[in-house]
Amino acid sequence: MENILETKNINKYFLDPVKFHVLKNISMQLKHKEFVSIMGKSGCGKSTLLYILSTMDSDYDGELIIDGQDMSHLSRNELARVRNEKIGFIFQFHYLLPEFSVLKNVMLPALKLGRYDEATIKKKAYEKLELLDVLDQAHKKASRISGGQKQRVSIARSLINDPKVIMGDEPTGNLDSKNAENVFNVLRELSHIHEMSMLIVTHDLDFAKKTDRIIEMGDGSILS
């Protein structure tokens, strides 16, 4: 099975306040339809790695290949396009635009991509909201819904452009166990039924155990 995402010897340093080797020779693969979790102690570099994999951070050494395309030499605008089209990102905090409606939040990345007309995008956004069981919140302002609902909406948003891979940085970290369970089930279902690859950073061992594979990180390197 082909790799949807692959890294070869990624190294990253922070120079401020002192030179600090935060990621050391990271080489990993994520296969099509695979659901992988990343675990490791706080401060070991999980978030830093995820920002690189999601193309938001381009300040590193090594190779990053997404969907067969080398990311190392792309311009910032080209990277934005890759992020828009192929990657769905779920943050730990519910990153929604507070003044926009839930529906608009979900629609915006698709409006940017411009693959479909607005009516089609709206229809798709409703479908994603329904999938995440927050359809009834569609016309509320994003700042007016609960934490669990916000996280579902941000998952719906990450799905709107039918990305190849979904990345999450502790998406359940701020949720109670019931909501966390729900979010996990949604992600599971997405990888199975909708054939998306998942790369999820988590602290929750129960969550991780249910995924296809666990990548164990420690001190900037992959342990197993």
Partner: peptide
């Protein structure tokens, strides 16, 4: 600031 970060994270370019 947050809005700008979200927009950029979801694929809007600096020019946008």
């Amino acid at each position: 600031m947050n809005d700008i970060a979200i927009l950029k994270a979801t694929g809007f370019t600096g020019q946008d």
